[in-house]
């Protein structure tokens, strides 16, 4: 069984990312969307937490949401994969269920 977790909140405003990461099991995936994409950026306070998480879970970020917010792809933490909406659909299909951390 594997879960695709989606996080749509900035980790600098809400605790959704932390709550999600503390319950995401090995083999599951986290997709950052909407304001959640701010967690995917290098040189920011959440980078160490994300790198630690990347050891056991797959991390993704929605490209269109990054782009809309003026964040170039080269600012994304290594190990976080960028996907588009079609990729989001694929992730939802390849995991057993989707858990939205609203």
């Amino acid at each position: 069984m594997s879960i695709l977790h989606t996080v749509n909140k900035s980790p600098y405003e809400k605790n959704s990312l932390d709550s999600c990461l503390s319950l995401a099991k090995e083999g599951s995936a986290v997709l950052l969307i909407e304001d959640g994409v701010y967690a995917a950026l290098k040189g920011a306070a959440k980078e160490p937490r994300m790198k630690e998480a990347a050891q056991k879970i797959k991390l993704y970020v929605l490209g269109p949401d990054l782009k809309a917010r003026g964040m170039a792809e080269d600012r994304v933490i290594e190990g976080v994969e960028i996907v588009d909406y079609a990729g989001f659909v694929d992730l939802a299909a390849t995991h057993d269920k989707v858990n939205a951390w609203l």
Binding site: L23, K97, V98, A100
Partner: peptide, 9 residues
């Protein structure tokens, strides 16, 4: 959570 079929938020 892992054991569920559907998660409503």
């Amino acid at each position: 959570m892992d054991d569920q079929d559907v998660i409503f938020s």
